[in-house]
Nucleic acid binder design. Structure first.
Lengths: 336, 336
DNA sequence: CTGAAAGCGCTTACAG
DNA sequence: CTGAAAGCGCTTACAG
């Protein structure tokens, strides 16, 4: 049914080597033969099979993005940046979604690396422990980390501690004192760092810090980085700390839920999110901006450079996040 | 560097056939040999290479989702449904993002099919013309269409005409008359259908229909299915038709922009979006719900069934969308 | 339960 | 500019 290089070669009266050359932009094929081969190929819908090409040439021209949960706006933006860069460089993108949790999670990550279905890997928000990173290090593949860093790997990340610190400090500077933090799964690495930054601001301010002001809601789904996660957390916050006078929230998606909860509870306090996803500008959400598209593009470039030069120096890029103030913190200066 | 089946076989003192059997859950391997092979493989990080397996066995166990623009909430939800189903069935998902426009678009679609990097394809919102569909039909691959249908292909879609009709009729029933439609790129198939439904409601109501009430904004990016597309369209609407008394909007993402524009313009009229993406519930946006996750799951099942049985009857599933009323149409009954 | 061997569909020196 | 041939890393009847 599906034709192979042999069928084309036979029909064109040439060798398979020649057919192969036509498809590999090799110049050493006469214009006439090239046209004949192309014409026949077009007629039967022939094109070299990716897998066979990969096997024979040892290059696939595809890189693989490994993400933990597909449906997250943060990843989507990053993937957009990756895609743009890749298209521009003639590579193809394959996306692998790690669905497991715990040990299974690592097994899946390791498995995808071992299958060697791509020449380079972009890990987006894949957080592992030291043992696991070390284990990965031994595989002869190029990997660039996004939103994470570990010694020995190229990486592009944002300083989460600083981002949370800046947001919290801004609130403190404005005179707020009982600043709550709407958090997500606390074992998640970005959350840990954001909590660290949040604490840091308090310490620096000389305020005694109340760990109970950090609250997370439903973390079952996507580690709590959901509208629902934010909504339930804010409700809880209101029960436990009705006096809370401002909030820092660990992601914009959650902040959408927080805003809704505030509305339902009829309370109105300043709120700062994290990420600056597309809609934030439109719903007037203040936030800590992560340059997601840029991160994707830079990481892609880094990976490609690494693939070309195994021995180049490790590159660890760390962005400083930017605080963007919008309507959700409109009253912020009035109180001080 | 990277080890192959030969290295493992040599180290284990068995043939490559045996190593292969170990990795293919074949039962005919003694427990002892199996363990030895597994242990050595583990030590050197060996795992059969996907491409070589694919070539030799002629099955990849991967299906490919083909999408036009990655960063769109609609696709994300559908991909979520696909992913869940696939994981559950032990298949792997690869995603191909078609980035071209016009003829290049079709070339890319055709190219990805011809490369045969997957055993089945899920086309999400890929809209082609009759010639192009016919051309695709000749390839010996399984394809299931999502958000589109064409004779001869399995498909899962939603009745866009009906969705738009229902939304518009609801507004008309409530007594509104100058109902605007915030549209996107008009050559886009879903837009065409939604405009058709919008018109239909007017006709049925015996109202003369004003084509100028259909307005689109910036359609350069993602065909206008963006917050910005909605924002600019609403601004334009306000200039051209300041008397507009309600709006039907072709997607929720755009509606987020419309809401913001209304706020900036200080006008407040009922608004109904389309899709029911995750945040809609939280921002109180009335909308026409498309069961995106379900569509992804059903389409996946359909595709897998097709792959198992080439000659089964074509399945064309068409969902009826559901209207969901929220805050953005709160005043809807007062006017009538 | 295990091995030798053919074959999957390509690419790529090597010759000419 | 073109072809014969080896090889990429696997799987899978076929024998035993």
């Amino acid at each position: 049914m599906a034709s192979t290089i042999y069928d084309i070669a036979a029909k064109a009266g040439v060798s398979i080597a020649t057919v192969s050359r036509v498809f590999n932009q090799s110049t050493s094929v006469s214009q006439k033969t090239r046209e004949k081969v192309l014409k026949i190929s077009e007629a039967v819908g022939y094109h070299p099979q990716a897998y066979a090409q990969g096997l024979a040439s040892k290059k696939l021209n595809t890189i693989m993005a490994v993400v933990p949960v597909m449906s997250n706006y943060f990843f989507i933006e990053i993937l957009g940046g990756i895609q743009d860069k890749l298209t521009q460089l003639g590579y193809e993108l394959s996306i692998f979604n790690v669905t497991g949790t715990g040990d299974v999670f690592f097994d899946q990550v390791e498995h995808v690396i071992r299958r060697r279905a791509a020449e380079g890997y972009l890990f987006i928000s894949i957080h592992l422990n030291a043992d696991q990173w070390d284990k990965l290090q031994k595989y002869p593949v190029s990997i660039t980390l996004i939103d994470e860093f570990y010694e020995g790997f190229d990486s592009v990340s944002v300083d989460n501690v600083q981002g949370a610190y800046t947001a919290t400090k801004t609130l403190l500077d404005a005179g707020y004192e009982k600043i709550g933090m709407i958090s997500a799964l606390e074992s998640s690495k970005p959350i840990k760092d954001r909590i660290k930054g949040y604490k840091l601001a308090f310490e620096e301010f000389g305020f005694s810090f109340d760990p109970n002001l950090i609250i997370s809601g439903d973390t079952n789904y996507r580690d709590g980085f959901t509208e629902r996660g934010g909504y339930t957390a804010m409700q809880l916050m209101n029960e436990v700390h009705p006096k809370v006078d401002a909030c820092f929230c660990s992601s914009d998606v959650q902040a959408v839920g927080v805003l809704k909860a505030m509305e339902d509870l009829e309370i109105s306090i300043p709120l700062i999110g994290y990420d600056d996803i597309e809609i934030s500008e439109y719903i007037g959400l203040s936030t800590v901006r992560q340059p997601m598209r840029d991160m994707g593009a830079i990481a892609t470039q880094t990976l490609l450079d690494r693939m070309k030069n195994e021995s180049k120096a490790i590159s660890q890029i760390i962005y400083s996040p930017e605080l963007i103030l919008r309507k959700s913190t409109n009253g912020i200066l009035k109180k001080s």
